Simulated scan of single mutants.
Amino acid sequence: MTVTDMDGPRWSDFEENGFVVVRGLFSGAEIDEMCAEFAALHAAGPVPGHFEPRATGAAGTAGPVDPLDAHPRVMHPHRINELSLRRLLDPRLRRILETLLGEEVLAAQSMFYFKPPGARGQALHQDNFYLRVEPGTCVAAWIACDAIDRENGGLEVVPGTHRMDLFCPEEADAELSFVREYVPPPPGLAVVPVDMAPGDVLFFNGSLVHGSGPNRSADRFRRSFIGHYVGRSTHHIGRHYPTLTMGGEPVALPESEGAGPCGTEFAPAAPH
């Protein structure tokens, strides 16, 4: 089974499977603008605490040790980039999120992934393992900025896990994943690939097990912009996720225990 184009979003899919895809929510021009913005951010160099590329190998070596050395993910770009803030708080996302959650939503996090050719993926995991939203869970809005499929490391989901508690992760395979946490699919449940076109948005429950494999393409990036959101009824959230109203006003929430940044990365590979 592969999730491909359908006539339109079926909101019941979110309740039944833990995710729903909205096709073409953002235009090609909007996606081009976002990609150009992050290309400029990459060209400008490090932004401590948000975007920290590493040296691309020892002198005399050919190219980077790891493609993610030069193209790591950008954490919380909405705090340093006006376009990212606008995208995180976009009214189109707000309307859908309020439909899915049934209440006012708050924005908690943004990320941008470059995922260049040859990059490792992120092993199967649950977002709320890191955010620790109480009560309930978070919801992600995952915006495709390229044509995304299994070859270039597209997202995969495990429908049904959104109804389950948080799992205790195992250690991931460092050859395949740049983060340590790995949640195997529970018995009887299967991994489903989600193919997407630029401008499509995947909305999914924070307890849904999901992840991606390596980008095995020769020359295709798999760029994506992700926002994480919570309902207004949230009482606690991890300290790494200061929340905003969808109008951009800060909302102070007490800290929950056991939270952490999204994904514990393996130590960088030594130059060779």
Rank of each mutant, 00 (worst) to 15 (best):
R94M: 04
R95W: 03
R95M: 13
R95C: 02
L97T: 12
L97W: 09
E98S: 03
T99M: 07
T99K: 08
L100D: 06
L100R: 13
G102N: 07
G102V: 08
G102A: 02
G102F: 07
E103C: 14
E103P: 05
E103Q: 14
E104D: 15
E104I: 06
E104K: 10
V105H: 07
V105R: 00
V105K: 03
L106F: 14
L106H: 12
A107W: 13
A107S: 03
A107K: 02
Q109E: 04
S110W: 15
S110P: 12
M111L: 13
F112L: 13
F112M: 12
Y113K: 04
Y113I: 08
F114Q: 05
F114P: 00
F114E: 14
F114I: 08
F114D: 12
K115S: 03
K115G: 05
P117Q: 02
P117M: 01
G118R: 12
A119M: 07
R120G: 01
G121E: 10
Q122P: 01
A123T: 02
A123N: 05
L124Q: 08
L124V: 05
L124H: 13
L124K: 10
L124G: 06
H125T: 01
Q126D: 00
Q126G: 07
D127R: 01
D127A: 02
N128C: 11
F129M: 08
F129V: 09
F129H: 13
Y130H: 15
L131H: 15
R132M: 05
R132E: 05
R132K: 15
V133W: 01
V133E: 00
V133T: 14
V133H: 08
V133M: 03
V133N: 09
P135K: 01
G136N: 09
G136V: 06
T137W: 02
T137Y: 01
T137S: 12
C138I: 12
V139M: 11
V139P: 14
V139C: 14
A140N: 14
A141W: 11
A141Q: 14
W142Y: 13
W142A: 03
W142C: 07
I143G: 02
I143Y: 08
A144Q: 09
D146M: 06
D146T: 14
D146I: 08
A147G: 11
A147V: 15
A147E: 15
D149H: 05
D149R: 00
R150Y: 09
E151G: 06
E151P: 11
N152R: 08
N152H: 06
N152K: 00
G153L: 03
G153M: 04
